[in-house]
Amino acid sequence: MLVAFSVAPSGTGPKGGDNPEASVHDAVAAAVRIVRESGLPNRTDSMFTTIEGDWDECMDVIKRATEAVGEYGSRVALVLKADVRPGHTGEMTGKLERLEAALDAQA
């Protein structure tokens, strides 16, 4: 399965409150570190981090990343979208390769 997810702290915490310098980049970095250390195929862009693995692997990583972000605020917002396709692997790149081939065929 592929899971695209985003986590962000809110509420009060080390960088929360009325601090105008507050940003979520430190919290996101903590989450992305957990993702990268997991060994699962992953990709991070400006909006989401996508991981590939089975249910248990993906949900464990997402849970740990969410807990890490929780250190930066009193609440955590978690958004996720999953593409559950049993028996398929390599879809993080496979889906993009099929898209590019379709675009080339239409050109």
Rank of each mutant, 00 (worst) to 15 (best):
T89L: 06
V24D: 05
S46Y: 10
G13R: 06
G17K: 05
D104T: 11
D45I: 07
I51V: 12
A8T: 15
G11T: 08
D56N: 08
R36T: 11
V24H: 06
G11P: 07
R98K: 15
A22W: 11
C58D: 01
G70D: 09
P20V: 10
A77L: 15
L78S: 09
D54Q: 04
V3E: 00
S23P: 02
T89D: 07
E21C: 02
G53V: 03
A68M: 10
S38I: 02
P86L: 06
W55C: 03
V69W: 08
L78H: 06
S46K: 07
V61N: 04
S74Q: 07
V79D: 09
E57Q: 15
A31K: 03
V35C: 07
E97P: 02
A65I: 00
L96N: 09
A65S: 12
G53F: 01
K15E: 13
A77N: 15
S46E: 12
L99W: 14
R75S: 11
H25M: 11
A101D: 15
G53C: 05
I51R: 00
E91C: 10
A101K: 15
V3A: 02
V7W: 05
L78Q: 11
L2C: 06
P86E: 12
P41W: 07
G13F: 09
A102H: 12
M1E: 02
A77G: 08
T44F: 04
K15H: 12
F5E: 04
S38M: 06
V84E: 04
A105Y: 06
N19K: 12
T66P: 01
P86H: 04
R33S: 14
G17P: 03
P41N: 04
F5V: 05
A4R: 01
A68Q: 06
A31S: 05
A101V: 08
S23G: 08
I62P: 00
A101W: 02
G16T: 05
T50H: 00
V35N: 06
T49S: 05
R43Y: 10
S10L: 09
P86A: 11
A77C: 09
K15Y: 14
T50C: 03
N42P: 03
A22P: 05
L96V: 15
I62C: 01
S10K: 02
S10Y: 09
T89K: 11
R43E: 11
D104A: 15
H25I: 13
R36S: 13
E21W: 10
D83K: 10
A107N: 14
A82V: 07
S6D: 09
M92I: 12
A77S: 15
S23R: 14
D56G: 04
T89W: 01
D60C: 02
I34T: 08
A102D: 13
C58W: 00
N42G: 07
D56P: 00
V84C: 00
V3P: 00
A22E: 12
T93K: 10
I34F: 05
N42F: 10
N42W: 14
A77R: 13
A31F: 07
I34N: 05
M47C: 08
T89C: 01
S46W: 08
